[in-house]
């Protein structure tokens, strides 16, 4: 597909509102290599930047207003089934405290470092980097199984992942993603980990529950988020509870 086609795409890109959380990789002026081997400026993909719908724990307050994003766009990293929390963030890094901004940032540098080299020769993180070039993660069945460590979605969020699209999720990872607002957890109707390849350029249209693989030219339906939607839209469990009047607004 020609790069010109990409430059005419207009999708909302979510930009982090957190001073501690690095901006989404797509908002940097760096260039993406597209399948045509031509390069275009990433910023040409952005028509109307919106604030992230997903406030992170490093934000100033959980009750700040954020406009919901309508889409995510970026390069994807593909993993298989049963990617457990030890592969997402190995236990030796759990001494880092996610609510500490500096340590939050460091957690990102270790995201998916536990994936075995033989199975994943292309690494998610480049050595010495705090954020990944891959902002969309595509997984198989039972993604995020294992520990209840919140460090797992936090590490992904800190590394710049905006959305995870999996065939299915382990309960606690899904819940932690929703409660924290670190990453947007979506489920695919098809087994996308066998349809997409690491490096493919992806757009997720939330309103249409659609994943578009620009590299292959294919589109895939995503499952609706269901009754968790209001919590995701609010930006996590604290924002949701405040919106519902269950806990008072934070004194800033």
């Amino acid at each position: 597909m020609a790069a010109a086609t990409f430059s005419s795409l207009h999708h909302n890109i979510s930009i982090s509102s957190s001073p501690n959380k690095p901006h989404h990789s797509l908002t940097s002026p760096n260039l993406i290599k597209f399948p045509s081997s031509q390069s275009i400026n990433r910023s040409s993909l952005i028509s109307k930047p919106t604030l992230s719908p997903i406030p992170t724990r490093t934000r100033a307050a959980a009750d700040d207003f954020t406009a919901p994003a309508t889409a995510f766009h970026g390069v994807c990293y593909v993993v298989g089934d049963n990617i457990d929390t030890d592969q997402i963030i190995p236990a030796e890094y759990l001494t880092l405290v996610p609510s500490n901004p500096d340590e939050y940032k460091r957690l990102g540098s270790f995201a998916l470092i536990g994936l075995p080299m033989a199975a994943y020769p292309t690494r998610f993180m480049s050595p010495g980097e705090f954020t990944s070039q891959y902002s969309i993660l595509i997984g198989g069945d039972n993604f995020g199984c294992g520990s209840s460590r919140e460090h797992a979605p936090v590490a992904l969020g800190a590394a710049g992942v905006k959305a995870v699209v999996a065939e299915s999720y382990a309960r606690i990872f899904f819940r932690n993603s929703v409660s924290t607002g670190e990453v947007y957890p979506l489920e695919s109707e098809k087994r996308l980990c066998e349809e997409c390849k690491t490096g493919d350029v992806i757009t997720i249209e939330l309103g249409e529950s659609l994943l578009i693989n620009h590299t292959s030219g294919k589109e895939y339906k995503l499952k609706p988020v269901g009754d968790v939607g209001p919590v995701i839209e609010a930006g996590g469990i604290f924002a949701y509870a405040r919106k519902a009047g269950m806990i008072p607004s934070r004194a800033v």
């Binding site: 299915s168 309960r171 819940r175 988020v225 968790v228």
Partner: peptide
């Protein structure tokens, strides 16, 4: 489904 589950039938 369990807490905060996607709207899926397993």
């Amino acid at each position: 489904l369990s807490s905060f589950s996607p709207n899926t039938s397993f």
